[in-house]
Amino acid sequence: MNKLNNLPKKKILSLFMTCGFPNLSQSKKIFQEMLSHQPNIIEFGLPFSDPMADGPIIQESSKIALKSKLSTKHSLNLIRSLKKERSNTAFVIMCYLNTIQKFGVKKFTNEIKNIVDGIIIVDLPFEEETSIKKLLDKSNIHLIKLISPMTNKKRSQRLLKDAKGFVYYISATGITGSNKLDYSEINKNVSSLKKQTKTPILVGFGIKSRKDVLAINSKTQADGIIIGSALIKKYFEENMNFKKYLVSLNKFIKQVKI
């Protein structure tokens, strides 16, 4: 059963966190804290040395994770150890293609089968996805589509034709953790996408407060939101004090869960 097929109709919450950040054992505690809030989705970021679509905060978290000698295998084992059958939270991996390619696409798919419900491969556009998608489909893992404000209607129609799980709408033409959010533009684009697909549309990139979450919910037709950088940023705001970070993370997730 793919848990992404049972997402609620509205107010979907997806939380992103870099695997192995700041190190493997603390990372597990962070994910456990996140899971305790029962978000609809957790996105596990696999750290990459050259995350060209990520902003400074996720870059830094990847760098710290990699410095602790984290391997792909470590990350996958961590994800497996967090899996609970009775939980409703869907598991999604977010990564760059080279990580999967080097691990071996087939081997990677086998490793995550029955554990992960979806995967976002940041640098794998529609044009290049065919062979990987076939393998994922066989294992009932949804390849999540990304749509940006630059994607025109003709292209989005092609992209959304076989969208499954959810659609990741990149809310700003920017990198993760960017500043500006233009609600009327988001609404215009999301409304147009809603007409093209029944798959839930989640808005990501640049959401950092309860205010943002409420605004996306009331001012746009989006079905939910994705928060990443803002969760990681707390770690640095707490001066890398892990205990304080867990408290602050708990408080923040409560705020954004509407």
Partner: peptide, 20 residues
């Protein structure tokens, strides 16, 4: 026309850049 030199090349970028 997809920018392939044999297997090499291609376009591996995020959806923000693809249309561009």
């Amino acid at each position: 026309n997809l920018g392939r030199f044999g297997d090499y090349g291609g376009m591996y970028v995020s959806e923000t850049l693809m249309p561009l």
